[in-house]
Design a protein around this nucleic acid. Structure first.
Ligand SMILES: [Mn+2]
Ligand SMILES: [Mn+2]
Ligand SMILES: [Mn+2]
Ligand SMILES: [Mn+2]
Lengths: 163, 163
DNA sequence: CAAATAGTTTAGCCTTGGCTAACAATTATT
DNA sequence: AATAATTGTTAGCCAAGGCTAAACTATTTG
């Protein structure tokens, strides 16, 4: 595997003529970065579904598949299939043609996701981002924010709350 | 489609006893949030490959499939298949068993991605996030940050650069 | 220069997350 | 109560992005 750390001759030259970014991180660390993102991608749709189901129950009294399809902008067939998966994962309970409920575990996930989502959203607003844009960005960013960063974001929000 | 905006009776009650998040956004806006995330997911792997190829060329003189597999933490077969896709998309040129080059378009994408990635990384560091964590978070977040937010992040970096 | 090693490609498999079309059940309207 | 409209399910299709195993090419080394 040719990852000997032998920078090529022109490296210095091409370095000098542009505001080029940082050096490549060590291979092991770089790999962990991509791995973390791949892992996030495995769970993020699940989290969004569970969070949305929780929100629908909280704000509307019940979660129907049609509402989910509607809000997600996706076909009812897609939702139906996804609900079977959530069921198999032990996150929701569902009887055919009836509305959905979160299991204990599902409620826990919904709660965690919602809190995280809120922090990211409020952080972006505190930063000065327009509400609509902040909501769009938060929907994607939330799944890629570590606990460490989340804590710092919360601190930033608190700073900007008083004054 | 039952998205009549008729909140259920208990809504106020459940609202009062918890620091519950914002209300649900209007359906159209909510849909656009999820749509934007789905769109980002279609391009983000592509962007990461192109960006990495650009970085390898810049820092090492050439981009070999083995290095990509190594740094991405993925099999060589996966990389080989992906390279065919990048080729079909007109982002890279490649002759069998030889190293890779970016097309004009590929270079443009690499440049844009690298700049955006850099801003997010520097922003997180300026916020006070540990370097390793910042790199991990940036790798995922970068694909979900709007131009508006990016501009604000750049402003924040500049603020914290001078003192 | 022949053999061994390293790098690349191909074939075939799997899961996820979309879709449409057809059908089934529930709920609303007359 | 019968019919219409809405909602939910199923079947079957597709592309993306992983994997392993096997074959092939290029490079290095004895
Ligand atoms: Mn969310
Ligand atoms: Mn989300
Ligand atoms: Mn990147
Ligand atoms: Mn990335």
């Amino acid at each position: 595997m040719s990852d000997n750390d032998q920078s090529h001759p022109n490296a210095a030259a091409s370095m000098s003529n542009s505001n080029c970014g940082d050096a490549l991180p060590p291979v092991g660390q770089h790999t962990r970065q991509y791995e973390t993102v791949r892992n996030a991608h495995e769970t993020e749709l699940i989290e969004d579904y569970v969070e949305l189901i929780g929100d629908l129950i909280r704000h509307r009294g019940e979660a129907r598949a049609a509402d989910i399809a509607n809000r997600m902008g996706v076909s009812q067939a897609t939702v139906s299939k996804m609900i079977r998966r959530l069921n198999e994962l032990g996150l929701v309970t569902s009887r055919p043609y009836r509305s959905l409920f979160l299991t204990e575990e599902g409620q826990k996930m919904a709660e965690i996701s919602r809190k995280r989502h809120d922090i990211v959203l409020h952080f972006l607003r505190a930063l000065g981002v327009n509400d609509t844009t902040a909501r769009i960005d938060a929907e994607g960013m939330e799944h890629h924010v570590s606990d460490e960063t989340l804590t710092i974001m919360q601190g930033f929000i608190d700073q900007h709350a008083k004054r």
